[in-house]
Amino acid sequence: MAEENKKSGGISRRSFLKGLGGGVAGAATLSPTGLLSEETTKAILGPQAEMLSGSQKIQLKINGKTSSVTVEPRTTLLSALRNQLELTGSKEVCDRGQCGACTVNIDGKTQLSCMTLAVDARGKKITTVEGLAQGDELTAVQQAFVEKDALMCGFCTPGFVMSATALLKQNPSPNMDEIKKGVSGNLCRCGTYPKVFEAIDAAAKKMRKGG
């Protein structure tokens, strides 16, 4: 029997031997899908529990202001930014966390908006590339990217700018190795890297001088 089970796969030896049962779930009602019924879920979580399904309106704090978006649980933050708020500076490139073009800052850390659910971003402080400059006044990092030509087609550029900004906040005097590591999660296909490194170095120097 145990051998049989191994061959069919799917259930580990431990789970087979140990079995299941006991606890709250043991007594709980199962819905036809096998999942806990909504009623039981509420019983587990308490009456205040929030279970989201289908489309609904949520609030997101983006670039210092609160915005409403209508999302499903599966809607990514990137999709909400791009398709609902028209904050299209965060780019959809790989949509799998492999390129960094959708990098945003969430609660002080660079994160990938394509790998973040919009519902999971509620209550968090989100900064996108559109939230860096004060009006037309570019940040030192942005200015340096322009001056050093750290962009060609520009599609990866917002992601690089986000990573560079976070890097310099964490480490105001990075050496070349630290600069490269700081943007190693961002992919550029035009091959702009040398000028990106140069721009970050120049921005760091300028910011240290208080410029």
Partner: peptide, 26 residues
């Protein structure tokens, strides 16, 4: 993505029960 229902777990003790007993469901 196929849509799903989403729950923010409020207490660790709830999690095993919320997960359910079959792979693939949660």
């Amino acid at each position: 993505m196929v849509n799903f229902e989403y729950i923010d777990a409020k207490s660790l003790g709830d999690v095993p029960d919320l997960l359910g007993k079959r792979w693939g469901e949660s």
